[in-house]
Design a protein around this nucleic acid. Structure first.
Length: 485
RNA sequence: GGAGAGGUGGCCGAGUAGGUCGAAGGCAGCCGCCUGCUAAGCGGUUGUGGGGGUAAAACUUCACCCAGGGUUCGAAUCCCUGCCUCUCCGCCA
């Protein structure tokens, strides 16, 4: 979330950021924004509208606070009068009116704050000044390269062919069990997943990352904290009813907010009441989401906490399965392990002081690269441009691994500094030694690495002419074999 | 799933026949004093967020005693709903 004070004082900075990301402008439905800011999800962000909301918010606060002050003062007087057994009927009558007025104002204020907050939640982060300005992935910058793509004296195969030939990946049965974009790993394939997970976790913990094994179902607050919600709900798997279903039911029942029905209790007919809208909201509030990345539960470990300066930096690493709907990528990567609804990943997450978060981003990226180096997989590092960066990120490096079967580099890790964007949403603060007040921490994370894609890289880079696959040396202790054949 | 108990400031812990409670007391922390040093002792001080105010402070005001509603002139205190924790019974990996 962006800082509302920054918006107030330097709106041009926010506008500039949105322009660089290509999402600034007046939406067509501007008259609807106040009521439903999320209607802008696919469109442009009209900052002037937001400023108007903010101005109104402050006016209303002033009005309500003055009345509340009056109520507090007079109520105390009434108390004193009553103790002295004196008459206070006049004051009480007056306060009755004041309280009603306050209630009215508070309701309006609440609505304004909801609208404003909903708006703030869909504004992306401000890119760091070092991020190249560009409109899409074509303008990303190749930052560095490690290793050279290997030369093969035979035509290298795709990983799915290798996997099926070796009998270690079974896509057909995975489709039978679950559907498209799922995989079934068998024998040395399953073993390879497990080996990579342990190898990555061991490597990270040896560098001081604390190992975490978090819940993989999380609530709405956690998803909002890291930025997946409200904007990217369609990317997530959800347990229970979806928002669409609830919204549909609401439109059906909205005219009958209170329903009476008969029920049998102890053999007697009894009338009961139910608030349908309240019930639906409650159902929606109880939903859980499958995590798309360990970033979500791990970053939310410290949600609503005030950390000590001495606790920072905090380094975590976590293995989790990850779940993604991959809506809107129907034609892409339909074969193989590249794009799955469920995949494994080892993640690293950092909570740091603001002044060294960029230094920490470099270190974090190097730590992710180190895994690839130890596995002997050639890669390059890409600095994403403003138009290609994720919603929550201020700066992102993608690491792309060389895949001979596809004759190209493919993303295997994404390392980002979110600055205080997530910390503000998730309310993660720290207190400086000897200073009053609190500050938001900076959060960072990166994959180290996506395990499924690492399997792809190993199969394709280490394939042999006879169809077998050599195991990288660093992995042999975990695999127990040197070769899959 | 059934029965009961409870959720108060960094921690412990008062406060439930509603009124001056942001909240007694203790611990921890901070600042002084004292002491050769440490400890003990003495005095003072210490929450978060929003609004106004300021160059920044000072200052001022509102809100916050799990969350959301309600009753009331007024709620930590009363009522409803939800969430969480604990104990017992049942069930279960």
């Amino acid at each position: 979330m962006i800082d509302i004070k920054l918006l107030r004082e330097n709106p041009e900075k926010i506008i500039d950021a949105l322009q660089k990301r290509g999402v600034y402008g007046s939406p067509k439905n501007s008259e609807e924004i106040t009521a439903m800011p999320y209607k802008q999800l696919e469109g442009m962000l009209d900052i002037e509208q937001l400023l108007k909301l903010e101005g109104e918010r402050r006016t209303r606060i002033k009005e309500a606070d003055e009345l509340k002050n009056r109520r507090n003062v007079v109520s105390e007087e009434i108390g004193k009068l009553k103790q002295k057994k004196q008459d206070a009927a006049g004051l009480i009558a007056e306060m009755k009116g004041v309280s009603e007025k306050i209630k009215e104002l508070d309701e309006r204020l609440k609505k304004i704050e909801e609208d404003e907050n909903n708006f703030l939640l869909i504004i992306p982060n401000i890119p760091h000044e070092s991020v190249p300005v560009g409109k899409d992935e074509a303008e990303n910058i190749k930052t560095r390269k490690w290793g050279e793509p290997g030369q093969f004296d035979f035509p290298p195969l795709n990983h799915w062919d290798i996997g099926e030939m070796l009998g270690i990946i079974d896509f057909d049965r995975a489709a039978k069990i679950a559907g498209a974009r799922f995989s079934l790993m068998k024998g040395m394939g399953a073993r390879l997943e497990r080996a990579l997970m342990n190898f990555m976790l061991d490597t990270n913990t040896s560098k001081g990352y604390k190992e975490i094994f978090p819940p993989i179902l999380v609530n709405k607050e956690s998803m909002t904290g890291t930025g997946q919600l409200p904007k990217f709900e369609s990317e997530l798997f959800k347990i229970g009813f979806t928002k669409d279903t609830i919204d549909f039911l609401k439109t059906k029942f909205i005219t009958v907010q209170k329903n009476e029905y008969e029920t049998m209790i102890d053999g007697k007919k009894k009338k009961e009441w139910i608030h349908i809208e309240a019930e639906l909201n409650r159902m929606l509030g109880n939903e859980l989401y499958l995590i798309p990345t360990a970033e979500v539960p791990v970053t939310n470990i410290h949600r609503d906490e005030i950390l000590n300066e001495a606790d920072l930096p905090i380094y975590y690493t976590a293995y989790t399965p990850c779940f993604r709907r991959e809506a809107g990528s129907y034609g892409k990567d339909t074969r193989g392990l590249i794009r799955q609804h469920q995949f494994n990943k080892v993640e690293i997450v950092k909570f740091v002081r603001p002044e060294n978060s960029y230094e920490e981003l470099e270190k974090l990226t190097r730590d992710a690269e180190d895994i690839l180096q130890r596995l002997g997989l050639p890669y390059r590092v890409i600095t994403l441009c403003t138009g290609d960066m994720g919603f929550s990120s201020a700066k992102t490096y993608d690491i792309e691994v060389w895949l001979p079967g596809q004759d190209r580099y493919r993303e295997i890790s994404s390392c980002s500094n979110f600055e205080d964007f997530q910390a503000r949403r998730a309310n993660i603060r720290f207190r400086r030694e000897g200073k009053k007040g609190t500050e938001f921490v900076h959060t960072l994370n990166g994959s180290s690495l996506a395990i499924g894609r690492t399997v792809v890289a190993i199969l394709e880079n280490y394939q042999q002419k006879d169809g077998s696959v050599l195991i990288p040396e660093a992995l042999r202790p975990y695999m127990g074999v040197e070769l899959i054949k």
